[in-house]
Amino acid sequence: MAGLSIWHVVIFAIVVILLFGTSKLKNLGKDVGGAVKDFKKSIKEDDAESAQLKDPRTIEADVKSTESSVKS
């Protein structure tokens, strides 16, 4: 058979644990989780920026922003 059986996966997991140890695997998991979290955060920030860029700029909006900055 070309596929992996459950025993292949179990033996592979045992070898990986013996080679690296549980503490290194735990740190690796934290690092990967942090990288995924940062990636998701940057995607959300990019979406927010692109939404702002898609808003059409009008003369009225420019006048209002200028008036509010002058009053401050």
Rank of each mutant, 00 (worst) to 15 (best):
66 T>Q: 03
38 D>L: 07
37 K>G: 05
21 G>T: 02
23 S>C: 04
25 L>Q: 02
68 S>R: 14
54 K>L: 15
5 S>G: 07
38 D>V: 05
24 K>L: 10
19 L>S: 08
59 I>A: 11
38 D>I: 03
53 L>Y: 10
47 D>S: 09
22 T>S: 15
35 A>G: 04
18 L>E: 08
22 T>C: 11
35 A>E: 10
12 F>A: 15
52 Q>T: 04
39 F>G: 09
38 D>Y: 05
3 G>P: 01
65 S>W: 03
70 V>C: 04
58 T>N: 08
31 D>Q: 10
8 H>P: 01
47 D>Y: 12
35 A>N: 03
22 T>Y: 12
62 D>T: 10
48 A>E: 13
37 K>P: 00
4 L>S: 07
35 A>T: 08
51 A>F: 03
20 F>K: 06
48 A>F: 08
68 S>H: 09
71 K>A: 15
42 S>A: 11
66 T>P: 00
40 K>D: 02
20 F>P: 00
31 D>K: 13
67 E>A: 08
52 Q>D: 10
9 V>R: 12
26 K>S: 09
8 H>D: 15
62 D>N: 09
35 A>I: 02
32 V>Q: 01
19 L>D: 04
64 K>V: 13
12 F>S: 13
50 S>G: 00
5 S>P: 00
67 E>Y: 00
67 E>M: 06
23 S>A: 12
60 E>P: 00
28 L>A: 12
10 V>H: 07
44 K>C: 00
4 L>W: 04
33 G>E: 04
19 L>P: 00
36 V>K: 06
1 M>K: 06
43 I>G: 00
7 W>Q: 14
57 R>L: 15
34 G>C: 01
31 D>N: 11
16 V>C: 04
51 A>I: 06
54 K>D: 14
19 L>C: 09
70 V>R: 12
24 K>S: 08
14 I>W: 02
29 G>E: 01
59 I>C: 01
68 S>M: 13
48 A>Q: 07
21 G>A: 03
53 L>P: 03
50 S>E: 14
65 S>T: 10
69 S>W: 09
71 K>H: 09
52 Q>G: 06
2 A>E: 13
13 A>C: 03
6 I>C: 04
2 A>W: 09
5 S>N: 05
41 K>H: 07
62 D>E: 15
13 A>R: 07
68 S>D: 15
41 K>R: 11
51 A>M: 07
30 K>F: 11
34 G>Y: 03
60 E>M: 10
49 E>L: 13
69 S>N: 11
63 V>G: 00
60 E>Q: 13
20 F>W: 08
65 S>K: 14
70 V>E: 10
11 I>Y: 09
71 K>W: 06
26 K>W: 12
44 K>F: 04
56 P>D: 15
10 V>R: 08
23 S>L: 12
13 A>L: 12
13 A>Q: 08
40 K>I: 11
36 V>R: 09
63 V>C: 01
66 T>L: 14
43 I>E: 06
49 E>V: 08
42 S>C: 05
72 S>Y: 01
15 V>R: 14
18 L>F: 03
41 K>M: 03
6 I>A: 14
6 I>D: 11
3 G>W: 03
33 G>C: 05
59 I>H: 02
60 E>V: 10
36 V>F: 11
59 I>F: 14
